[in-house]
Computed example of a mutant assay.
Amino acid sequence: MNWDCLIVDDEIELAKATCEYFEMFGVTCAFVTNFNDCVLFMESNSVKLILLDINLGNDSGFELCKALRQKTDIPILFISARQSDDDVLIALNIGGDDYIKKPYSLSVLLAKVKVIIKRYEGAAKKSGRSDTVGSEDQEKNNYSNLRIDKDAMKVYRDGKDVGFKTKEFKLFLYLYENKNRVIAKDELFKMIWGDAFFSDGTLNVHIRKIREKIEENPNQPKYIKTIWGTGYMFETGENE
């Protein structure tokens, strides 16, 4: 069966209330309460978005996220009462797309979910088309050791695939295609995630992971520069 959203949360009443609220506004929603039930659910159903709690009784939402990321790239939003920055960073580093702290507003959560689902559906439609522009999809440049294959959504450093995840590639490519231009954070949120609900932490973690994969020294980046108070810029050192 096809669902818009799956909630994985051991707070049954909250999960049930959230599902009922989503259904009122046309978002099909199911919920499970633990690691194993989520795995079984995903084997026989398809979803466009997962809302995942960290504390799942004896199970860990972090471990479940890692397991899911071995099989799927669908958006995963953590929902948790845990407030520490360490938890947020762990969630984003292991593949979470955002972190929502409990208690949350159902109306704001619904708005976020709708935007992400719309974005996901748009990306799925695009992936079903063949948008080929010939050899230009494999770009080589004269200023670096990087090669970009847009069709395969891969970036190579010194001939080796750096292993970008989908969001990382999209963010890298947007910065690259707008090289030598300062890009505001709001623009990146809109163009990559499809809305402005995501936190600075989400963007910062993705930038850091990209730097770790393409830069010789991520702490002194050559390509992706931070423009404090504004955003980021992919700098080539050339006027193109």
Rank of each mutant, 00 (worst) to 15 (best):
R119A: 10
S107A: 15
V113I: 10
L110W: 09
A123C: 14
A123H: 13
I117G: 00
A124Y: 12
V115G: 13
K102Q: 08
D98N: 06
V108C: 11
D98W: 03
I100V: 07
L106K: 10
V115W: 13
A124R: 13
P103C: 01
V108Y: 11
L110A: 12
K125L: 14
L106E: 09
V115K: 14
K126T: 03
K112R: 10
R119N: 12
K102H: 07
P103S: 01
K125G: 14
G122Q: 06
L110Q: 10
I100M: 04
L106V: 11
I94Y: 06
Y104T: 04
Y120D: 09
P103L: 02
K125D: 13
K114Y: 09
I100K: 02
S105N: 07
P103M: 02
I100W: 02
I117D: 00
Y104D: 02
L106I: 11
V115H: 14
Y99Q: 00
E121P: 03
A111C: 08
Y99C: 00
L110I: 12
K118S: 05
G96D: 08
K112L: 03
K118A: 06
L109N: 01
L109A: 01
K126D: 01
D97M: 13
V113S: 05
Y120E: 11
S107C: 15
Y120R: 11
A123Q: 13
A124E: 14
K126W: 01
K102F: 07
N93C: 12
D98R: 02
K102S: 08
K102I: 08
D97T: 10
G122T: 04
K101A: 15
S105K: 06
D97A: 13
L109C: 01
L106R: 09
Y104V: 03
Y120K: 11
N93V: 11
I100E: 02
L106G: 08
A124Q: 14
V113W: 03
K126G: 03
I116N: 01
R119W: 10
K126F: 03
K125H: 14
V113C: 08
E121S: 07
G122L: 05
G95F: 03
V108R: 10
A111N: 06
K125E: 13
G122Y: 05
N93I: 11
S105H: 06
L109T: 00
K112M: 05
K101D: 15
D98E: 07
P103F: 02
I100S: 02
K114D: 07
K101R: 15
N93E: 10
G96E: 06
A111E: 06
I94L: 10
K118Y: 06
S107W: 15
N93T: 11
R119P: 09
A123L: 15
V113H: 02
N93P: 06
D97L: 13
K125P: 10
L109S: 00
G122M: 04
G122V: 05
K118T: 05
I94F: 09
D97G: 11
G96T: 08
G95T: 04
P103W: 00
K101W: 15
V115C: 15
K101E: 14
S107D: 15
K112I: 04
Y104L: 04
V108K: 10
K101M: 15
I100F: 02
Y99L: 01
G122K: 05
I94M: 09
K114G: 08
Y99N: 00
D98M: 05
K101S: 15
Y120C: 12
I116C: 03
K102E: 06
I94W: 06
